[in-house]
């Protein structure tokens, strides 16, 4: 799936540029965007080291257990096949809470760790494609139900207070910059509820790809 999306973006872009004469812009964009990906990673590296470092302290101090304990029923509801003591739960909980609070710098690190842990879980279960993790090329690793659910939740947008939008609105002279908070919360609830209903329909069904 991702192979096709990625290839499609590149091929369509290049063919379209051929007809519109934007080839020079495309040529520049390749290098420019490759560079900005590295810049982004360097920026992210700081946040990532800070956050995962803090999480390690929090984990050893027993804070994460305490904290995920409260979210346990919710996580059990959405991820019924992730065992109670599995480390993936801590990262999923952290990612979701960081998302809801709009702490962008904390979401991605926790999200990436959650995906790593969910992949390990599949490896422990001996799912096809996961057994040679990190050593050989994994031909056909398929997402687990938990991964699908986790990503849909993330993409359904969980952030309650759109802090950035409020800031941009006031910068451009809005009379009521924070007037969008309530509608934004309602819209976010709609998209998240739709996501959860879909997750509940598909979770645990073996068919479908």
């Amino acid at each position: 799936m991702l192979n096709y999306i990625w290839a499609g973006m590149l091929l369509i872009g290049i063919i379209y540029a051929l007809f519109t004469g934007n080839m020079e812009a495309v040529s520049n964009a390749c290098l420019e965007y490759a560079e900005s990906a590295v810049t982004l990673c360097i920026t992210m590296a700081g946040a990532m080291a800070l956050w995962v470092g803090l999480m390690e302290i929090a984990g050893q101090a027993g804070l994460i257990d305490k904290f995920t304990g409260k979210l346990q029923p919710f996580i059990s509801y959405l991820f019924p096949d992730v065992p109670e003591q599995h480390p993936a739960r801590g990262y999923i909980a952290t990612n979701l809470v960081a998302n809801i609070l709009g702490l962008g710098w904390a979401c991605t690190p926790a999200g990436l760790k959650a995906m790593e842990e969910l992949a390990k879980l599949e490896e422990e279960r001996g799912m096809a494609g996961y057994e040679t993790a990190g050593r050989r090329k994994n031909g056909n690793r398929a997402a687990s139900d938990a991964m699908c659910a986790f990503l849909i939740l993330n993409i359904s947008s969980l952030q309650l207070i759109p802090v950035n939008m409020i800031a941009y609105r006031s910068k451009y002279g809005s009379l009521n910059p924070s007037g969008i908070i309530l509608p934004a919360i309602l819209a976010t609830c709609c998209s998240t509820i739709a996501g959860i209903i879909y997750i509940k329909m598909r979770y645990g069904r073996k068919n479908g790809c």
Binding site: M1, L2, N3, G111, L112, M115, E116, L118, A119, G129, A133, N138, G139, N140, R141, A142, A143, M147, C148, L151, I152, N154, Y198, R202, G208, C209
Partner: peptide, 13 residues
Amino acid sequence: YYMAARVKKTRWT
């Protein structure tokens, strides 16, 4: 997220 976990088939995501 999926490339970080080296997942190819995204199923119902």
